[in-house]
């Protein structure tokens, strides 16, 4: 009960920040996602009621953009670049190793809610291939043997 109340309070503050402007829906959802690391179902219904926007409309936005997640996400997002350069340098081996070590498949979150594994296209630093990005930190020239050590630093 208490948790739900603080959740509503936080969402209310976010809506207030944008003066309840319906056209700022994407910005509001981004802020909610930043707050909870995903878009909880209850918050979407809450926003719908508070801002008088049909839930369908919000759901359309939330499912259209890749940046939004409706599933709970880990504390750290591991983005493995699968762009051309990284792919050629063996990024698929990094994905395989991470999937094995974290025992999740790409797109999922570990049980302890620490890591979410994601495949991305180009991160824009092909000269560093193969590259992964964890919570915004870029790790260049990786081999799969280095991965366990890197992950330990985030735990």
């Amino acid at each position: 009960m208490k948790k739900a109340q603080t959740m509503d309070k936080k969402v209310k503050d976010i809506i207030k920040k944008y003066y309840g402007d319906k056209t700022a829906m994407i910005a509001i959802l981004q802020d909610v996602q930043e707050e909870f690391r995903y878009l909880p179902k209850e918050t979407l219904s809450f926003i719908s009621k508070k801002m008088d926007v049909p839930l369908t409309r919000i759901y359309e936005i939330a499912t259209f953009y890749n940046a939004f997640s409706l599933k709970p996400r880990g504390k750290h997002t591991i983005e493995v670049c699968l762009g051309t350069a990284c792919h050629v340098q063996g990024a698929s081996r990094l994905i395989d190793r991470l999937e094995r070590d974290l025992s999740i498949s790409s797109g999922d979150t570990t049980k302890d809610k620490m890591f979410t594994l994601e495949e991305v296209r180009c991160l824009g630093c092909c000269s560093l291939a193969p590259v992964i990005r964890i919570s915004g930190n870029v790790h260049p020239y990786l081999t799969q043997d280095e991965l366990p050590k890197i992950l330990r630093n985030y735990k």
Binding site: P54, T56, E60, T63, F64
Partner: peptide, 8 residues
Amino acid sequence: SAIGLSRR
């Protein structure tokens, strides 16, 4: 507005 198109 009970239904909509979702995903992409």
